[in-house]
Design a protein around this nucleic acid. Structure first.
Lengths: 153, 153
DNA sequence: CTCAATATAGAACATTATCCCGTATTTCCG
DNA sequence: CGGAAATACGGGATAATGTTCTATATTGAG
């Protein structure tokens, strides 16, 4: 997975991140190459797992998902089967967009997108009834200042 | 921005979120329609801002970005020009993938992707030298349990 | 029920992705 | 250095796809 990327690869990735709908000819022109090498490089980077997927990003508010919470979780349980159960619960719930296991006294952080505070509470009640959790703090986002999937290349 | 979406629109969005590279014919077949209406609906949803962009997702580790931090920020300053400056600083830094203004005693949360802890420290030092911040807590991600851009439709 | 407005399917055309091939460039080893 | 092997390149051929058009079907309002 330690893919070696040269300058050309990185330029191509920058273009694809910016707009994956543009044509190969256009990308080739912008990065100063031609269609075939660009196509081969993209193919290789997909195979190597550098490019994981091609998708569209949607406007959450337009879909009626107007609330975003960051959830800080402490747990007293650290056994393998508890963790597996917790993990499965998160994977199953589409409102959980991100979940990280952390170092330090907070064990997990979640990013949760829901319709409103009521929907968050329903999610929260369902989660704690399914897996034992010691302590939860929810941070409510008032404003999404920045949100990007673009990684610096 | 309160776009009204019917079942067909939602099916199309689900398909596009799953794989934006598939052809119109394929999407049309899956959602039980044909090319033209699917194309028209996608066009409309782009115009309406429901679909904001088409992009590729990259594997951060493969790019050498192996560390992810969530940064909890408290500030004593709440004036407009401080906020504008802070906002600009975040926008300019590509390692800041997300930034939210919060309700409650923590004012902001950031998600920051960097090469390693050293790179985070450089980012952190640069940020606090640029804007006055009262209190910072960094949460280090040990493991990305879940990460998706797919919104439930 | 009737008319108007909108959505649809399929065909026609334009653009693009994909693959092939001959040439140029780089790399590696003597 | 020099030369051979491997790799990368540019441009063209072809298959696939996106885009637009038109005639028909469906829906909704009065």
């Amino acid at each position: 997975m330690a893919a070696r990327l040269d300058e050309m690869d990185r330029k191509i990735l920058a273009e694809l991140q910016d707009d994956a709908a543009q044509s190969l000819d256009e990308i080739a022109r912008k990065v100063g190459s031609s269609k075939t090498p660009v196509w081969n490089r993209i193919k290789r980077m997909k195979e190597d797992g550098v490019i994981t997927r091609q998708t569209v990003l949607l406007h959450a508010e337009a879909l009626g998902l107007e609330a975003c919470f960051f959830v800080l979780i402490r747990t007293s349980e650290h056994e393998a089967d508890w963790q597996a159960k917790f993990l499965r619960a998160l994977q199953e719930r589409p409102e959980v967009l991100e979940a990280h296991r952390l170092a330090g006294d907070i064990d997990y952080i979640l990013k949760v997108r829901v319709k409103n505070a009521r929907a968050y509470d329903i999610f929260y009640q369902a989660l704690i009834s399914e897996v034992r959790i010691f302590n939860v703090t929810a941070l409510l986002s008032m404003e999404e200042i920045k949100s990007t999937t673009v990684l610096p290349v």
